[in-house]
Amino acid sequence: MPQKIILDVDTGIDDSLAMLYLLASPEAELLGIAATAGNVPAAQVAANTLAVLDLGRAPEIEVALGAAEPLAVPLRTTEDTHGLQGLGYAVLPLSPRALSARSAAQLWVELARAHPGEAIGLCTGPLTNLALALRIEPELPRLLRRLVIMGGAFNHPGNTTPTNEWNVHVDPEAAKEVFDAFSAAPPDRRPVVCALDVTETIEMRTEHLEQLARAAGSTPHEPIGPADLLEWRSAATNPIVRYLTDAVRFYFDFHHQYELGYLAHMHDPFAAAVALDPALATTRPATVDVELTGTLTRATTVADWAGMWGREPNADIVIGADPALFFERLVTRVGALARRLYPEQP
């Protein structure tokens, strides 16, 4: 049976690859997509999301616009990481698809009510929309079959401040509301949290892009590297490969600029893979809370692993994964999707 997914994204580079992974996975059924302000403003996120659906020749999937601002602080975006439009060096045409008439929060609530105990929530951006949805429907932790969150950093340095991760940093109040609300979830429905501790081990390298291009049957062979000019753009015959090459190359350049290597952390596609197959991850239960007042540590996710707070666990934190297995699935699935949608013409 297909797994019903409610996807909440702030569509930047790795979010778009997560979307393509879901579209390429026969066990995934996308019920709807919420556009969250984060990597870029909400309107640009929505435009990117619709354009990626076009690229993936997806059926009609409802996309709802989310809140323009976080719950309590001004929006901070990250064009330096994802490019001016959020898709790196890639440019996709504007989609003719229309946005939903309902808000992202309404989308969450009404889809969860329509599919009680069946829908998996997958959040790869800030948690603003989900927090607003919980204010409308506090029963969401029991209505959802499972929730998978890409966010947080526990026994690991942050990627935005020394202690916190980007998605939580953008809207820490929303993250706290979500973790507090899911304290009411049954143990078998605790959120699965894919934090930096593991997602920064999911390192895409140039060989993965080359493998994907071969799987798609795309030509010409286009090895890329840090010496490439900024103006260089892919000439791949397959549109999905061409898009991914231009998008991910920006991500490679960003990580290389900060001396992390010529690679890209695939945070969001990994979370998508875990949403479909939890066996890809090893988890450990903990009680998670979010610091809101610390002068140096605001937006830090804190895990009580030992029960010192006297509160039941409200999350299963991913503590281990097999990156090679994940990339094997990513390359196989997205490569096959690209080949099927855009077969080479004789």
Score class of each variant (00 low, 15 high):
M266C: 14
V168W: 03
A281I: 07
S218H: 11
A46C: 09
V91N: 04
P226M: 04
E139T: 14
D15Q: 07
T49G: 10
I33F: 09
N155G: 15
T128A: 08
I136K: 15
E222S: 01
K176A: 12
I6L: 15
P187F: 07
A18D: 02
R242K: 04
I319A: 00
D304I: 03
R329T: 05
A271L: 06
G158V: 10
S100A: 14
A112W: 14
S183D: 08
P2D: 13
T49P: 10
L7Y: 13
L87S: 03
I33M: 09
Q211E: 10
C194D: 11
N39H: 02
Q345I: 06
A275Y: 02
W108R: 03
Q345P: 02
A47I: 05
E291V: 13
A306Y: 13
P186D: 11
P269H: 05
P223Q: 02
T160N: 05
W108N: 01
V73P: 00
P285Y: 12
E139K: 14
V170F: 05
A315W: 09
S218C: 10
M204G: 01
A299W: 07
V302M: 09
W305V: 04
T237Y: 13
L337K: 06
M150K: 12
V290N: 07
P346H: 00
V40N: 06
P220T: 11
A68I: 01
E207L: 01
A105D: 03
G88F: 05
A303Y: 01
I319C: 04
P220K: 08
N238M: 05
